[in-house]
């Protein structure tokens, strides 16, 4: 990952960027968006502007209650040390995008990979949000994954390397969403292993609004 990384071609839907800026995405999906933003200045600018919409809406809200409510209590707390110290910046691991460093430490190849098949290894990330599975995937260079569908919907963001499938070619920062109707067979680039973030909603949550939630995630 260097300053020469080309800008991504596959972006989240603008409505999802608004969801992210408004704060309504569940953490695993917000993590996928933030990971894309790491690579994509255009979407970072869109999110910054969508946050400005939030600022403008907040400023225009009719006041609820008097401005002096609670002022004395808060003034008395100003000299208290913060209950939670401001988190220091996580150590830099050049091949792990910033938003992921809260969840994994170290360099990508050195993570505790668990081998699933000859061509696929995974690392589970913990987010404490029920109904979602958040993993890093490593697809061996040149390997084709078995053709598969997902029981839930999966959102992936390429971190390093790249792959191609029926939907196109995916390079660092590119986002893909596949729902259970999509059968695809990703094939990693021949020259290096392909690393991705993958967020899946668990099979048990397939029905209902979560099923709807992920399908419109991506605009191509």
């Amino acid at each position: 990952m260097t300053a020469h990384t080309p800008a991504p071609h596959h972006h989240p839907d603008p409505a999802v960027l608004v969801d992210y800026a408004a704060g309504s995405l569940r953490e695993p999906l917000a993590l996928a968006v933030a990971t894309h933003l790491w690579f994509c200045r255009a979407c970072r600018d869109t999110v910054a502007n969508a946050e400005a919409v939030g600022g403008a809406l907040l400023a225009a809200l009719p006041a609820a209650g008097d401005g002096d409510i609670g002022l004395a209590e808060v003034l008395a707390l100003l000299d208290e040390p913060a209950a939670v110290a401001v988190a220091p910046r996580a150590p830099v691991a050049a091949d792990i995008p910033g938003p992921l460093r809260h969840y994994v430490q170290g360099a990508l190849p050195a993570l505790p990979w668990r081998t699933t098949t000859k061509s696929l290894a995974t690392v589970d990330l913990t987010t404490d949000v029920p109904g979602y599975r958040v993993r890093l995937l490593r697809i061996a260079a040149g390997a084709a994954m078995p053709r598969h569908t997902h029981r839930g919907t999966e959102v992936t963001v390429v971190l390093k390397g790249g792959y191609s499938d029926e939907l196109g070619r995916f390079a660092p920062g590119d986002v893909a969403a596949t729902d259970p109707a999509v059968a695809h067979q990703p094939m990693a680039d021949a020259d290096q292993d392909c690393y991705c973030l993958a967020v899946t909603d668990a099979p048990v949550r397939l029905v209902g609004w979560l099923g709807l939630l992920l399908n419109p995630f991506v605009r191509f």
Binding site: T5, E27, A34, L37, R41, V92, G98, T127
Partner: peptide, 23 residues
């Protein structure tokens, strides 16, 4: 998000030296 939903809001640090294509 933190107090009502007990979740984090993952973000990009605009000052991170590793950030791709900073403004």
């Amino acid at each position: 998000i933190d107090q009502v939903r007990r979740e984090r809001h993952p973000e990009v640090d605009p000052d991170d030296v590793e950030l791709i294509d900073p403004a």
